[in-house]
């Protein structure tokens, strides 16, 4: 993969996270739907075992909901690129 393609691939991911994520469907996903229909949703609504810093993809401290999602998506996507790349480098190094 050349540098140009890496940047293009990353750009597509970043644009999706930045521009499309605020307009994603707010409806519950398949599991939430089933949990709701069958009445076990509240089992998952106790406080989580570990409190994550950016719950529900909403960057803290930003009032506008769309912007909060967009920024969380942007930072998450960039970080995820670094993590995926880093893990691959580590695995490659381990081999030698």
């Amino acid at each position: 993969m050349g540098e140009k393609e890496i940047l293009m691939g990353l750009a597509v991911a970043v644009l999706i996270a930045l521009l499309v994520s605020p307009f994603a469907s707010p409806w519950p996903d398949g599991l939430e739907r089933v949990a709701k229909d069958q009445g076990f949703l509240e089992k998952g609504e106790e406080p989580p075992v570990f409190a994550a810093p950016v719950p529900d993809y909403s960057f803290p401290g930003i009032c506008n909901k769309e912007w909060a999602t967009s920024i969380a998506g942007f930072i998450g996507t960039m970080a995820m690129f670094g993590i995926g790349y880093g893990v691959a480098v580590l695995i490659k190094r381990r081999k030698r």
Binding site: G9, A13, I16, A24, S25, R33, T69, M80
Partner: peptide
């Protein structure tokens, strides 16, 4: 494949944020 793994991680993460409606009141 090293940079591709970075790009794929970023892409899968971004794409998983995009819920699309599948039927009345449910998304995926």
């Amino acid at each position: 494949m090293v940079p591709l793994m970075g790009v794929m991680s970023a892409f899968v993460f971004a794409a998983q944020m995009i819920n699309f409606p599948v039927m009345g009141g449910t998304s995926g």
